[in-house]
Design a protein around this nucleic acid. Structure first.
Lengths: 144, 144
DNA sequence: GTTGGTGCAAATGATTTGCAAAAGG
DNA sequence: CCTTTTGCAAATCATTTGCACCAAC
C-alpha cells in the first residue's frame, strides 16, 4: 500500500471523505519530498486534475495538520510551507542575512522535548522548527 | 539615561535620524513590557502624537530589528508580535488546542545554542521562540 | 438521502510600496 | 541643502469565508 493510500485510509477512518482532489493533494505532498506551499500544491494538482481551488488545498491541509499528517512551518518567506510529516523529523537553520538554509537533525531537540515534558507536562510539537540566525559566512562579513 | 534615550543614541550612531515618531515607537515598545503588535504600537503612539501611519511603524520596526533592539515573533495569531529585546530572553509554550501561553526561561536553550555554534558555526537567534504543542490539560482531554 | 466537500467569488487583514511633501542633521 | 523619513493611498498577497452545487458513503 502506497503512502498516499495509507493516508487515505486514515482519512476514511477519521470519518473524512476521499475525493480525487484530496488524493492528489496527498500525492503532491508526498512527491514534493520537502517543503511545498499551498499554491504550489494547487499548481501540481491542476496538472492532473484541471480545476482545484487554493481554498480546497488550504481546507485539506487543515484536516491533515489536525491529523498530524503534515507539518506547517513559517520559513519567513511570507507564506507557510507544508511538508509530509517526515519519517525522520528535522529542522532548519535559516540565515537571516543570506537566506541560506541548512538542515538540522532532530536529536538536537531531544533533550529540550524531555525537559518540557518533565518540567511543564507540555507535549511540544518539535517536529519542524525554523531557527533563524547568522551562518558562518555572514558572521564573518558582519564582523568586518 | 532612559532606555529609550539609549536606543535613540544607538539609532543616531548608526546613522539614523531621530524623529518624534521613532521616539514614541521606542517608548511604546518599552512600555509594553511584553508583546505588542504593529497596529497596537500605532494606536499608542497616536495617543500622544496625532498622526502616525502603520507603515511608519513597520519601517521603524524593520530598522530596530536589524539593529537587534527588538524581536519579532509569530505567535500564530495571524499577526507578528514585537518585543523590546528582552534583558532576560525567554520563550513561550503555546497550546495549539486552548491557546494558553506559558513562559519558558532561556536556559532551556543554552545547550542547543552551544551545539549549533560548535557543530555548524551558526549564530542562532534563540532569543524569543514560540513553541507549539499541547498543555497538560489538553493532553488529558485528547486522551479521553 | 445526509453530510461533508468543492469551486467560485468576494472579503479579510497584515504588510509593503510609490510618491510628493516635510523634517532631521 | 541633501538625505532620510513620513503620511497617504493604493497595491500585494496569503489565507479565509459565504454560498450554492455536487459528490462520497
Amino acid at each position: 500500500m502506497s503512502c498516499e493510500d495509507e493516508a487515505a485510509e486514515m482519512l476514511r477512518r477519521a470519518g473524512h471523505k476521499i475525493t480525487p482532489q484530496r488524493v492528489l493533494i496527498l500525492r503532491a505532498l508526498r512527491h514534493a519530498g520537502g517543503h511545498i506551499s499551498a499554491s504550489q500544491i494547487a499548481e501540481q494538482v491542476r496538472a492532473a486534475y484541471p480545476v482545484v481551488d487554493v481554498s480546497t488545498v488550504y481546507r485539506t491541509l487543515d484536516v491533515l495538520k489536525r491529523m498530524r499528517l503534515v507539518t506547517a512551518t513559517d520559513m519567513g518567506q511570507g507564506d507557510v510551507v507544508f511538508e509530509w510529516a517526515p519519517a525522520t523529523p528535522h529542522h532548519h537553520l535559516i540565515c537571516s542575512s543570506c537566506g541560506h538554509v541548512a538542515e538540522l537533525e532532530h536529536h538536537y531537540f531531544d533533550r529540550l522535548a524531555d525537559q518540557l515534558a518533565a518540567d511543564f507536562s507540555f507535549a511540544a510539537d518539535l517536529h519542524h522548527f525554523a531557527i533563524f540566525g547568522l551562518c558562518r559566512g555572514c558572521q564573518i562579513e558582519a564582523d568586518a
